[in-house]
Write a protein that binds this DNA or RNA. Structure first.
Length: 477
RNA sequence: CCGCCUCUAGCUCAAUGGCAGAGCAGUGGACUCUUAAUCCAUUGGUUCUGGGUUCGAAUCCCAGGGGGCGGACCA
């Protein structure tokens, strides 16, 4: 570094004006015949990824975010001083280049450089140029290095961005308004999960990081906002696995005057459109099977699927002891606080869930496990609720929203009783939410989609860490 | 929290109880059409950490740490 400055080279200059991105250069001149010289001048910038030094002629491959191009650096063109500086370049350095567009005898699009300026010196070596970086620990801890050398890692986050922007576009087209609601909650409601706790010093009070977006968004439906959505980080203080990261991204939407059937339709539209936008096709490979997302997604009953898997009659209205007997037949252990509805869900999860490959709506969850969902208009023991499963994983959850404040209070009280009976994930009575319902919430359909898992499906990866830039890890030793 | 697997040079990997090595990167040199350029030379190690067994440990044993997978947990 001192040598560079002594030689009059600033290793960290302030800025560089480029005339073309590398993708723009390729789209403009990519069709030139081999062996073409042009008078077209460009200024481009990128990171040096490969160097091929043949003496008085150096080839370099530089890359910007979207493309690569070759630099053709001739000592006779650039001059002795400039060439001496080029000889000092290392893999990983950022450079700005002025020159003319040309193609080599083999047809490689190149910039014949007459000036190469160092934009930032890399003093740490790049991972192996051929094998890249494969150690997962290093890949996730040093995501910057992973992104530099692994095109597949870059692709995962391109898919993620495409999915997120596609969702926003679709929702805007459907008249939804994007909102932001608090991350710090005084009560952790809207889902069954253990929250993270934190502390506010000035107020001297404990707060929870949100485990769902639901209850605030529905307050906005009460307020008359009609169609709202939020894409936001939520936090669950639970185990880490290939499907779970403690902080993850949820999209939730609420639509006034709609019910669960409308919400199922928009779920299909959101995900199918995202596939088209991210991949250019609605066909995805799931466990080696090509599945066209544009075909209607099957709808099955949770209770029915559990009954079919066990070969026994099941219904949440049945005596708990009977449900528990079926559960023990299939090796599901039953907690004493559980009712028949919870037991049926556990049976479903233990038997049918992992067999679902293609996108499938699992419908009609028992009331017991659905404290915010509206009772089915044809069966008082189940709700108008669905979960979307793909490849054994839950991707989405939606329902006709319970808007009767008296019934909601009774459901909350059941939750609180279960919590006090020792079930830590159960909820509490949210008095402000009940007050909101008392002002009147129109009939509403609601939906939550796990954005990380949608990205996993579309990117074709098996671990959630592949679609989260900085997944949660223990501190480095 | 439990089980299995794993950790060797900056990176990717060898060495299975007997002198810690290779390729790439780095360094020095040659080369004006290369494509992972090539060729010659060369630097580089707390073998994750600590303890033990052994004449001798990267290798076997114990404890700890990081990571992966599975389980537990997790609408």
């Amino acid at each position: 570094m001192g040598d560079l400055r002594a030689a009059g080279v600033e290793p960290y200059p302030y800025r560089f004006d480029r005339s073309h991105t590398l993708a723009e250069a390729r789209s403009t001149w990519g069709a030139l015949d081999a062996g073409t010289e042009t008078d077209d001048r460009v200024s481009v910038a990128g990171r040096v990824m490969l160097l091929r030094d043949t003496g008085k002629l150096v080839f370099a491959t530089v890359r910007d975010r979207d493309d690569e191009i070759q630099l053709f650096i001739s000592k006779a063109v650039i001059g002795d001083d400039g060439f001496a500086e080029v000889k000092e370049l290392d893999l990983g350095d950022w450079v700005g280049v002025d020159g003319h567009i040309m193609t080599t005898r083999k047809g490689e699009l190149s910039v014949k450089a007459d000036r190469v300026v160092l934009l930032s010196k890399a003093i740490r070596p790049l991972p192996d140029k051929w094998h890249g970086l494969s150690d997962t620990d290093t890949r996730f801890r040093q995501r910057y290095a992973d992104l530099i050398v692994n095109a597949e890692a870059r692709r995962h986050f391109e898919v993620r961005h495409a999915v997120l922007s596609s969702f926003r576009r679709t929702l805007a087209d459907e008249g939804f308004i994007e909102v932001e609601t608090p991350v710090l909650h005084t009560e952790a409601g809207g889902a069954h999960a253990r929250p993270f706790t934190t502390h506010h010093n000035a107020l001297d009070m404990d707060l929870y990081l949100r485990i769902a977006l639901e209850l605030h968004l529905k307050r906005l439906i009460v307020g008359g906002m009609e169609r709202v959505f939020e894409i936001g980080r939520i936090f669950r203080n639970e185990g880490i696995s290939t499907r779970h990261n403690p902080e993850f991204t949820m999209m939730e939407l609420y639509q006034a005057f709609a019910d669960w059937t409308d919400v199922m339709a928009i779920t299909e539209k959101l995900i199918t459109t995202a596939a088209r936008d991210a991949l250019g096709t609605t066909t995805v490979s799931i466990r080696g099977t090509d599945i066209d997302l544009s075909e209607p997604w099957p709808r099955i009953s949770m209770v029915g699927a559990a009954a079919e898997a066990t070969g026994s009659d099941l219904h949440p209205s049945m005596p708990v002891a009977d449900a528990a007997r079926v559960a023990s037949d299939v090796g599901v252990s039953v907690h004493p606080s559980w009712g028949a509805g919870k037991i049926i869900e556990e049976i479903f999860e233990a038997t049918a869930e992992s067999t679902i490959v293609r996108p499938t709506f699992v419908c009609g969850h028992p009331v017991e496990i659905s404290p915010l969902a509206r009772v089915d208009r044809n069966d008082a023991h189940i709700t108008e609720r669905f979960e979307l499963f793909v490849d054994g994983r839950e991707l989405a959850n939606g329902y006709s929203e319970l808007n009767d404040p008296a019934e909601q209070r009774a459901r909350f009280e059941d939750e609180q009783a279960a919590k006090e009976a020792g079930d830590a994930e159960r909820g509490t009575v949210d008095e402000d939410y009940l007050r909101a319902l008392e002002y009147g919430m129109p009939p509403t359909g609601g939906l939550g989609i796990g954005m990380d898992r949608v990205t996993m499906m579309l990117a074709g990866v098996d671990s959630i860490r592949e679609v989260i830039l900085f997944p949660t890890l223990r501190p480095e030793a």
